[in-house]
Design a protein around this nucleic acid. Sequence first.
DNA 1: CCTACCGATCGGTAGG
DNA 2: CCTACCGATCGGTAGG
Lengths: 210, 210
Amino acid sequence: MSPRSSVAEARRTRQRIVERGIALASRDGLEGLTIGRLAADLKMSKAGVLGHFGTKEALQLATLEGAAAAFSRLVWEPAADVRPGLPRLRAVCEAWIAYLDLDAGRAVFPGGCFFTTASIEFDARGGPVREAVARMSRVWRRRLAAEARTAVAAGDLPADTDPDQVVFELIGLFMALNQEIQLFAAPDATDRTRRALDRLLGPCPARSAP
Amino acid sequence: MSPRSSVAEARRTRQRIVERGIALASRDGLEGLTIGRLAADLKMSKAGVLGHFGTKEALQLATLEGAAAAFSRLVWEPAADVRPGLPRLRAVCEAWIAYLDLDAGRAVFPGGCFFTTASIEFDARGGPVREAVARMSRVWRRRLAAEARTAVAAGDLPADTDPDQVVFELIGLFMALNQEIQLFAAPDATDRTRRALDRLLGPCPARSAP
DNA sequence: CCTACCGATCGGTAGG
DNA sequence: CCTACCGATCGGTAGG
């Protein structure tokens, strides 16, 4: 019951660092996230920032994990209550669009999709950051594939649908949406995405049984 | 008829620098392309490298232009002789797959698609490099859209096809293929891409008239 | 095209 | 959590 211990203070500070790190890295990448600029942004000393992580690589990994938690909160959780299968898959896609497009997502990730940036940045190198990015991407793909599989079992997608093919095309669609928003600020990009989703998952509103 | 003048020598050297720059930047990005490492790689002095461009930004722009020329040579030119419309669009897609997948492309761009990397790297910043990336992407999209339009006019794509929608989905597909290859080294990624292309453009081999 | 150099910033450490 | 510092590297310049 004591007023906030120094351990709790340190944890709060660490979280503040990670949150600012996510914002800066979404713009400049995890390699472009430098300890000096992060410290200046937080009005802390470089040693004060680095002390929470030890090395820049550990800071990058912590930032990546923080971004994954935020992504899960913004894109997965809003759809978690929806019925598994096609309805949930569609709800995830809507939240995913919002994550890329609306203030909710852009406030946390002002530089666009954090994982696309991190994937592109590290995909031609080795090391723990690259492996963490790959692992997170696999987890996300597995979640999506499970919903697609449920949708097939429920008859909401054609019986010959390959769930991994659906996931592959979904990934591409959202990468294209991310580019359209970040590079061209195209206002019709979300419509294009929804049209492609209809082509991939079937038209959105009430589908009669097959 | 004189043996190579010093002007021609300088041009050759500049080209050598740009070619190595493309290879290094495809791995580490245009910001990760440092003058010092590029010079060491070429066994030149930093001043010798920088003298050909003046500033790092000019080097980045020259590297970007060199990459665009190589992309055009690898992906556009092999299809330029094919009949305009759907046949040419399909030929471009095959060359595009080779650019991402085979030794031909990977020898020039060992770190994967140069333009995806550059786009992601600069899409949240300002400046001439970002504008150059956006301009090149627009040119490429316009070329693809023109072929799609021709295909519609020829009746090789449904009359209600939106060419820009086709281009949007193509861009996403090849970004997904790039990630699959670079991050996961997935051997079945080209098959997935061709399957998605069949869904988008119609099945590949001889289509009977509609 | 080179050597020699500039101030700024990088990741990281010592010591408190 | 700070100040003070380290060697390495950054982009760039002077002068030849």
